[in-house]
């Protein structure tokens, strides 16, 4: 099964995998080859995958098999999974200090209870910051 991860700027990953877990909008998906066609929204969280052994595994073999994903889409067909993510970062690329600031700023918006505040955007910001911090602490 082929996994492709792309952001608006570049193609991040393209390799053969045995299985993968991706953060859907309402919880994690575990995907194995032969999955039924699925289109899903992505939430903020951790993408992890198990590369297939052999020359196909690409330059990423042996490197981190985790990525931070923040929003976007996932398209699943029986032999390919394509993730179109707004954000994709390796654990060591995560800026924990910035994430903590974003988290605090998001929570401040929620606490302000202003009638014209964009709560959805604030909630998204909080979820992304929390996912970043969780992954940064793990590695």
């Amino acid at each position: 099964m082929r996994l492709e991860l792309a952001t608006p700027q570049r193609l991040v990953l393209s390799l053969a995998v045995r299985s993968l877990q991706a953060p859907g909008a309402d919880g994690y998906f575990g995907i194995l080859p032969g999955h039924a066609p699925l289109l899903s929204l992505l939430g903020a969280g951790e993408l992890s995958y198990e590369p297939e052994a052999g020359p196909e595994s690409g330059p990423e073999a042996g490197e981190s098999r985790r990525y931070l994903i923040g929003g976007g889409f996932m398209e699943v067909t029986p032999d390919q999974v394509t993730l179109l993510a707004d954000v994709a970062e390796l654990p060591h690329e995560i800026n924990a200090g910035q994430a903590r600031q974003d988290l605090a700023a998001g929570e401040a918006v929620i606490r302000s209870a202003a009638p014209d505040a964009d709560y959805e955007a604030a909630l998204r910001q909080i979820a992304l910051a929390q996912a970043r911090l969780a992954l940064a602490e793990k590695s």
Binding site: P8, G24, A25, D26, F29, A36, P37, L38, L39, S40, L41, G72, F73, T77, D86
Partner: peptide
């Protein structure tokens, strides 16, 4: 690709409304 019987999560509506702004920006 459209001939496949897609499943949508959480719903076709939700995906569509997230898709259009991104398509425009892209």
């Amino acid at each position: 690709a459209s001939s496949l019987a897609w499943e949508f999560a959480p719903s076709a509506d939700a995906i569509f409304s997230a898709l259009l702004p991104r398509y425009l920006a892209t």
